[in-house]
């Protein structure tokens, strides 16, 4: 049974998750008519910059996060940004959209200079998230759990982060067993996606390098969060 405290914790996280979304006009821009590969890249860069701002605002609302020491807050954001953004993109991508929009979005991503070897694992991940048909609560909690992963580089007070992540894992586990009574493996499948996300981190680093080679520029915020000079 989910306790009252757990219900309250989940509500705060879900409200923050719903409140901080990519601005509609930004999302619409992505679905407009065709652009060149260069303009696609600029659009996706602007989208990613928006996503980082949304990620930081969401994270500030996670109960207890702002009580962590400042350096660890920065280390957690930098360490989880790529995973949290892919998780968020996968959730947006798999959401029901007017027909035709999904392939416009997919087309735009495919024509933005991302190397093929990265494209496949990324779309496979989007598909694997889509197949779970996650509820908003599960999406919000899984994103918070990803951000509060203690073993990120440069995190010093692991225990303090674990004390925040544990209760979220506990309420997510209960939620999964309540919402998916006939699928005892569902919670494990969700956590399995976090493992998949880690591999995307590696591909993302490769992708940045290939973009850098073609002299693509990133915004200052992306350079900082992705540690790109």
């Amino acid at each position: 049974k989910i306790t009252k405290e757990q219900q309250a914790l989940m509500q705060v996280i879900v409200d923050a998750y719903n409140r901080h979304q990519i601005p509609q006009d930004m999302a619409k821009k992505l679905l407009q008519d065709q652009y060149s590969a260069e303009e696609n890249f600029l659009l996706l860069t602007e989208m990613a910059t928006n996503q980082v701002q949304v990620l930081v605002e969401f994270t500030k609302n996670i109960p207890g996060f702002l009580s962590l020491n400042h350096e660890d807050q920065i280390a957690l954001l930098k360490g989880s940004a790529v995973e949290a953004m892919f998780l968020r993109s996968a959730q947006v991508f798999s959401r029901k959209r007017p027909s035709g929009h999904t392939d416009v979005l997919e087309e735009r991503i495919r024509k933005s200079g991302i190397s093929e070897e990265f494209m496949t694992p990324m779309f496979n991940f989007y598909k694997s998230i889509g197949e779970l048909h996650m509820m908003q609560e599960e999406q919000a909690l899984l994103t918070a759990i990803t951000i509060l992963t203690p073993d990120r580089p440069y995190v010093r007070d692991h225990q303090a982060v674990e004390r925040l992540q544990e209760p979220m894992l506990d309420v997510l586990r209960k939620l999964c067993s309540l919402q998916h009574p006939h699928e005892p493996q569902y919670f494990a499948r969700l956590l399995g996606r976090l493992t998949e996300l880690r591999t995307l981190n590696h591909y993302h680093a490769e992708m940045l390098t290939s973009w850098r080679m073609n002299d693509h520029k990133f915004t200052p915020l992306l350079c900082e969060i992705w540690d790109v000079e």
């Binding site: 701002q53 605002e57 500030k60 609302n61 702002l66 400042h70 920065i74 954001l77 915020l221 900082e224």
Partner: peptide
């Protein structure tokens, strides 16, 4: 040292 944009975003009041 460039002022950290992340720090600025973190220090801004929540829900700005």
């Amino acid at each position: 040292e460039e002022p950290s944009l992340l720090k600025k975003l973190l220090l801004a009041p929540a829900n700005s």
